[in-house]
Simulated scan of single mutants.
Amino acid sequence: METMISLMIAGNNQFMIEMLLEVFENYYDIDVVGVAKSNLKIVDLAMKLKPHIILLDTIEPGIREINILKEFNKIKKDNRPLFIVLSEDGNNEKIKNIIALGVKEYLIKPLGTDVLVTKIRQVFIEYYYFKRSKLFRNPDIIQEVNSITSELLYNIGILPHLFGYKYIKEAISYMVNNQGEYKPLNKVLYPLIAEEFGTTSDRVERSIRNAIKSAWKKNRNFDKSIVKESGILEMFDKKPTNSQFIVALFDLVKSNIDNTNFKK
């Protein structure tokens, strides 16, 4: 079951709130759990709803982000929501002060909804999985995951000179760290991998697809080794999709690591 990102919107611009609510209705993984329109309501509602992230729109009077953030900083860190600020104010000094209070992203309006959604997903995954996860704090586990993934890719003909090679390895690292929960690659993993390597989601997707295609042409039987160990016999009657291949590879990598390493 995939984790929903619980989001609370804070702001008193009704038009902006309605627009954001309409936008988020189109995304399966973002659940708007509440809307707060004043400083006091933001704190009280957040304590009640416990959202993962608060999206704070600071354009209107009555929403004083500095006061709000200072109030939340009194709360134990593990119990605080994360903050993303939307603002038309690009003053560097103000941005510096806001970030110093723990804001994860300060986004200048106007911006595209795709950019906003990507930032929300990135903030959520980076904090709730990477920073709270124990798995990749152990360098031995990082090395083991990379080593196993590299060997499996080599055995099926996906070699380091292919762009898709490094993107597949990165995808496996994300999935191991997330215990396989984030399988919709185009919605979550591709944007994160693209940002990591300074490229685009489309190029990540295309490079992975080309790497799989290249290996498939070289060795039409490469899928049998994956199918045999992962128990998904029907999956690769034909060339697998990116998602099919990466999920199967993830299962193989995970099966090669001591299960205790995957416990949080």
Rank of each mutant, 00 (worst) to 15 (best):
L86M: 12
L55M: 10
V103K: 01
I120T: 01
I63D: 02
A100G: 03
I59T: 13
R80Q: 12
N79L: 15
F83G: 04
V103L: 05
N73K: 09
L101R: 04
D78M: 12
D114M: 10
K96N: 03
N79A: 15
G62T: 12
I68V: 14
I59H: 07
G112Q: 10
K70A: 00
G102S: 07
I108T: 00
N97G: 00
N92L: 15
K70I: 10
G90W: 08
D114S: 14
T113N: 04
L69V: 07
I120Y: 01
I95H: 06
I68G: 01
R80L: 08
E93M: 10
I68D: 02
L55K: 11
P81N: 01
G90I: 14
I75S: 00
E105M: 06
V85D: 04
I63W: 08
K76E: 14
E71S: 13
I75Y: 02
L111Q: 02
E93W: 04
K109I: 10
N97S: 10
L116M: 11
N79T: 11
F72P: 03
L69M: 13
K76F: 08
K96A: 07
P61F: 14
D78L: 13
L116D: 05
D89R: 12
A100C: 07
K70C: 09
N97T: 06
D78N: 07
I98Y: 01
T113K: 03
E60H: 11
I66T: 15
V103N: 00
I98C: 07
P61K: 14
E88D: 13
V85W: 04
V85E: 05
T58S: 07
E93R: 08
D89G: 08
Y106Q: 04
R80H: 02
D89C: 13
N92R: 15
R64Y: 14
K96F: 08
V117H: 03
I63P: 02
K119F: 03
T113H: 03
E60G: 01
I68E: 01
D57Q: 06
E88Q: 13
I84D: 02
I84K: 02
N91K: 08
D78A: 12
